[in-house]
């Protein structure tokens, strides 16, 4: 692969494929939290590396966009670097690490700490889009359960968690209800990030390449984490302070720094951490 414009269509996918994805995106925006089947293409990176997110980003990007790519909250993780390079190569759009300056942010496993704005799109990479999948392995069944809004199984699962562990034992990919209708998988973000989805100003798009599903949360949409009145949802984090920037309200990475197992805590959102330092 050499220069973008000569060898590839803008953003790699052909225009027909982009149109097909945009149609799925529009449908997804119209039915918040509903999983729209789409004819996912094989991408030049493996399934599981973010092919769904990459296709959604490719369908959204225009020449004037500024792209940010994060994985685990950081711009410097290997896969974020790889996906950012891919889009630099096949679109030539500007890229940034600055959350505020990005118009499209593709993410794996985190929502940025900085509050997003109306002129931003957040694209999530999704491995298993079906929140009911681990309760019911059959897609034919789970589609019917969504259609009938039959979510009893999920509540029983959460109840059983509490009765066994005294806690809802889901720490990431914590299920949410969107617009009082569909139960949705927020992708494997830590549940600390769930409240950021609620009435978010930005468009939130979710792409699951291997599973061939797209779903969305339009701006200013109600997104509630499932819970019980007596066991309310709690956005948990390590109760520590970032040792780099001193933040006390961010999601922290726990890093082992020596052979004795000494730990250091620092912000997972590298851009936010940098902005607090200076």
């Amino acid at each position: 692969m050499s220069n973008s414009e000569e060898d590839f269509n803008f953003a790699y996918l052909d225009e027909q494929t982009k149109r097909m994805i945009r149609r799925a995106l529009i449908k997804a925006i119209c039915i918040p939290g509903y999983q729209v089947p789409f004819a996912s293409r094989e991408m030049p990176m493996p399934y599981g590396w973010g092919t769904g997110g990459v296709q959604v980003t490719a369908a959204c990007l225009q020449e004037t966009d500024v792209l940010k790519v994060i994985d685990q909250g950081s711009d410097d993780t290997t896969n974020a670097v790889s996906i950012r390079k891919f889009f630099e190569r096949v679109t030539g759009v500007k890229t940034t690490e600055n959350t505020g300056k990005a118009s499209v942010i593709q993410t794996r496993h985190r929502i940025p700490e900085q509050v997003l704005s109306e002129d931003q799109i957040l694209v999530y990479q999704v491995p298993i889009p079906e929140p009911l999948r681990f309760l019911e392995p059959r897609e034919t069944e789970t589609r019917v359960m969504h259609a009938l809004e039959e979510y009893g199984l999920m509540h029983v699962k959460l109840y059983e968690d509490i009765s066994i562990n005294g806690e809802i034992s889901t720490a990431y990919a914590y299920p949410v209800k969107v617009n009082d209708r569909y139960i949705m998988d927020p992708s494997p973000t830590p549940k600390f990030d769930n409240p950021k989805m609620n009435f978010c100003s930005a468009i939130q798009l979710f792409g699951a390449g291997r599973e061939q599903r797209i779903y969305a949360v339009p701006p200013y949409t109600k997104v509630i984490s499932l819970d019980f009145e007596d066991y309310p949802f709690e956005a948990s984090r390590a109760e520590k302070t970032c040792e780099i920037c001193g933040a006390t309200n961010t999601y922290l990475d726990e890093v082992v720094i020596d052979d004795k197992g000494t730990r250091m805590f620092s912000c997972s959102d590298s851009d936010y951490c940098n902005s607090q330092k200076s």
């Binding site: 590396w49 909250g73 990431y172």
Partner: peptide, 19 residues
């Protein structure tokens, strides 16, 4: 792809499990 993707960084989720 899906089997091998578990070698990618998952430390954010693992941190949530740890907590």
């Amino acid at each position: 792809g899906f089997v091998e993707h578990i070698k990618l960084p998952h430390y954010v989720d693992f941190q949530a499990e740890l907590e």
